[in-house]
Simulated scan of single mutants.
Amino acid sequence: MRPIRITCKLPRSGPPQPGTGVRLALYQGENPVGTSEAVTANLHRMQEVVEVAARYRAQLCAFPECYTTGYSLGAAEARALAQPANGTAVQAARELSAAHDLAIVLPYVELDRAAGTVHDSIALVVDGELAANYRKTHLYGAAERINFTAGTELPPVVKVNQFPVGLLNCYECEFPPLYQSLVTRGARLVVGPTAADHHFTLHDGTPTQVPYPDATEHIIPAMAAVWRVFVAYVNRRGWETSERGQWQYRGNSGVWAPDGAPLIAAGPDERRDDALLLADCVPDEVAPFSPEGDHFTDNRVALREELLPLH
Score class of each variant (00 low, 15 high):
residue 108 Y to I: 02
residue 150 A to N: 06
residue 65 E to C: 07
residue 178 L to F: 14
residue 228 R to C: 03
residue 76 A to V: 14
residue 161 N to P: 00
residue 88 T to Y: 10
residue 73 L to K: 04
residue 264 I to H: 04
residue 229 V to I: 12
residue 255 V to L: 11
residue 161 N to C: 00
residue 117 T to V: 09
residue 263 L to V: 05
residue 239 W to K: 03
residue 134 Y to N: 01
residue 189 L to C: 05
residue 140 Y to K: 12
residue 214 D to I: 05
residue 132 A to I: 03
residue 147 N to D: 13
residue 72 S to N: 15
residue 38 A to Q: 02
residue 285 E to L: 14
residue 104 I to Y: 06
residue 169 N to T: 12
residue 3 P to V: 05
residue 113 R to Y: 10
residue 266 A to C: 13
residue 59 Q to Y: 02
residue 5 R to H: 13
residue 250 R to L: 15
residue 286 V to D: 07
residue 247 W to E: 14
residue 202 L to A: 08
residue 206 T to H: 10
residue 26 L to V: 05
residue 7 T to Q: 06
residue 283 P to K: 06
residue 115 A to S: 14
residue 284 D to I: 09
residue 13 S to D: 15
residue 56 Y to L: 13
residue 111 L to W: 12
residue 225 A to Q: 05
residue 16 P to F: 04
residue 285 E to F: 10
residue 13 S to P: 08
residue 155 P to T: 04
residue 139 L to T: 02
residue 171 Y to I: 09
residue 182 L to I: 08
residue 95 E to T: 09
residue 234 V to R: 03
residue 282 V to Y: 03
residue 233 Y to K: 07
residue 253 S to K: 10
residue 88 T to A: 15
residue 251 G to P: 04
residue 238 G to P: 11
residue 90 V to H: 03
residue 202 L to H: 06
residue 198 H to P: 01
residue 248 Q to A: 12
residue 189 L to N: 01
residue 9 K to G: 10
residue 114 A to L: 14
residue 245 G to L: 11
residue 201 T to M: 14
residue 79 R to W: 08
residue 117 T to Q: 13
residue 144 E to G: 07
residue 130 L to I: 02
residue 118 V to I: 08
residue 37 E to F: 04
residue 203 H to E: 15
residue 224 A to M: 12
residue 109 V to P: 00
residue 255 V to H: 06
residue 247 W to M: 15
residue 303 L to G: 07
residue 116 G to S: 11
residue 28 Q to H: 01
residue 90 V to T: 05
residue 275 A to N: 07
residue 85 A to L: 11
residue 266 A to S: 15
residue 163 F to Y: 02
residue 134 Y to E: 01
residue 128 G to L: 00
residue 33 V to F: 01
residue 209 Q to S: 13
residue 38 A to H: 02
residue 63 F to V: 15
residue 51 E to K: 11
residue 106 L to S: 05
residue 180 Q to A: 15
residue 93 A to G: 08
residue 89 A to I: 04
residue 66 C to D: 14
residue 62 A to E: 09
residue 161 N to Y: 00
residue 216 T to A: 11
residue 58 A to W: 10
residue 245 G to W: 10
residue 224 A to W: 11
residue 124 L to H: 00
residue 157 V to R: 01
residue 176 P to E: 01
residue 201 T to I: 15
residue 78 A to S: 09
residue 132 A to T: 05
residue 269 D to I: 07
residue 239 W to N: 03
residue 228 R to P: 01
residue 128 G to W: 00
residue 118 V to F: 02
residue 25 A to E: 08
residue 231 V to K: 04
residue 229 V to R: 07
residue 119 H to W: 04
residue 97 S to Y: 07
residue 309 P to D: 10
residue 304 R to V: 14
residue 13 S to C: 08
residue 28 Q to D: 01
residue 223 M to I: 07
residue 218 H to V: 14
residue 85 A to F: 10
residue 124 L to R: 00
residue 52 V to G: 01
residue 169 N to M: 14
residue 307 L to W: 12
residue 6 I to T: 13
residue 45 R to D: 14
residue 161 N to H: 00
residue 18 P to S: 04
residue 187 A to F: 07
residue 268 P to E: 10
residue 10 L to G: 00
residue 108 Y to T: 03
residue 302 A to W: 10
residue 106 L to M: 14
residue 245 G to D: 11
residue 13 S to R: 12
residue 22 V to S: 02
residue 45 R to V: 08
residue 225 A to K: 02
residue 36 S to A: 13
residue 176 P to M: 01
residue 288 P to N: 06
residue 147 N to L: 12
residue 253 S to R: 09
